[in-house]
């Protein structure tokens, strides 16, 4: 086992950890969603990279090629991308509503405003 044979995993893990860090450490809700997107793309790498065969080609059947990369991760990740953009749209809609109700998209300010007046979010719309 060499370093280069596991290089794709190293990239995947770096992206995953960076996304996780953004989601946990940053209080801004839009930044959190971007971090979630980075985390998600790291999962794309996690699935696609093991399916690659060096010397292989894209999985489109043709008489000139004998070796193809694995098509099944591609199918799974196509679904994941589309579902990802759906969740992103829903998350951003929630952020916009939170901005209307609290006039901020910083997590700390939202918490402070909730502690200031209990049950305040119901009336402030």
């Amino acid at each position: 086992m060499s370093f280069w044979s596991h290089f794709s995993y190293a990239i995947t893990i770096f992206l995953m950890v960076a996304g996780l860090y953004i989601v946990i450490a940053r209080g801004n809700l839009i930044k959190k969603l971007v971090g979630l997107g980075v985390f998600q793309t790291s999962v794309y790498m996690l699935y696609i990279a093991p399916g690659k065969l060096i010397g292989g080609t894209a999985p489109i059947i043709d008489a000139n090629f004998k070796v193809y990369s694995n098509p099944l991760p591609h199918v799974l990740i196509l679904t994941a991308i589309v579902v990802g953009v759906a969740t992103l749209a829903l998350g951003l809609a929630l952020v916009v509503r939170i901005r209307e109700a609290y006039d901020t998209i910083e997590e700390d300010d939202i918490l402070a405003s909730d502690e200031g007046e209990p049950g305040g979010d119901g009336q402030r719309r």
Partner: peptide
């Protein structure tokens, strides 16, 4: 580069 051309097209347009 990883041979996932369909996924790359979707990622470029959607992502």
């Amino acid at each position: 580069a990883l041979d996932a051309v369909d996924v790359a097209m979707t990622e470029a347009s959607v992502g």
